[in-house]
Write a protein that binds this DNA or RNA. Sequence first.
DNA 1: CAGCATCCGGAACGATACTG
DNA 2: CAGTATCGTTCCGGATGCTG
Lengths: 112, 112
Amino acid sequence: MEQAGICQISTVEAVMNVIGGKWTFPILCNLLRGDSRFTEIQHHLDGISPKMLSRRLLELTENGIITRNVIPELPPRVEYRLTAKGKDLRPLFQAIGTWGTTWNITETSTAQ
Amino acid sequence: MEQAGICQISTVEAVMNVIGGKWTFPILCNLLRGDSRFTEIQHHLDGISPKMLSRRLLELTENGIITRNVIPELPPRVEYRLTAKGKDLRPLFQAIGTWGTTWNITETSTAQ
DNA sequence: CAGCATCCGGAACGATACTG
DNA sequence: CAGTATCGTTCCGGATGCTG
C-alpha cells in the first residue's frame, strides 16, 4: 500500500497554504463558473464581508491564480479572471465535488 | 449559470468543513501512504502536537473517514485505517499533488 | 504508548462605517 | 462600484503536564 508519490505532504501543505482559506474555495467556485466582478461574487457568497473578499482576491492575485483588471469607466469596474494556473484547479474542484456528492457531504459536520 | 454541476458552492464548503483543518490533509496523506499508528503519524508530521493529532483523528473518525482499532496489548496499540469513504479521497489528493507539482507550489506563499 | 486537561497567543474571521 | 479602516470576536493551534 506504499505509494509515496501520490501525495507529498510538503506539497499538500503548500497548496493548502495557498488555497486553504475559509472563503478561497467558494470564491474560486464562482470564478470557475464565470463570475468576475466584485459585487457579483459577493452576492453569490452569502455572508462574506467585503473585507474578507477583498483580502482573498488580493491573495489569489499575488499567488498568480487570478488577474485583476481595472476598467476605467464610470462607475468603476473591476474584473477578476482565472489565469491558466487558476483554471488548472478545475480537476481539483471536480474531485471535491465528486467526493462530496458521492458521500453526500452536505452539512457542516460538527466535530470537536 | 453555466456548468453549475462542476462545483456546487455548498458542497465545496461542506467538504472543506470536514477535511479543511490545518493538519487534516497531511494526516490523510500519511494514512493513504500506509501509516496507521499514532506515533508513526506524529513522527511523519514535523511539528504537530499530540493534542491536535488526537483531535483531528477523532474528528475524522466521527466523520466516517477513518476507523479506530484498539488492540489490547502491552504497550497499548491503536491503529487508524481509512474507510472506503476515506480511500475515496485519493483522487482529490492526486489532484492536489498534480496541481502543486505542475505549478511548483512549494513555499508557504505569504499573502495578506 | 496513546491520549486528555488546561491555559494561552495570535491569526483568521465578522460587522459596520466610510471613501475614491 | 469597489473597495479601505477600525474595531471586536472567535477559534485554531501551540505548549505543557498528567493519566490508564
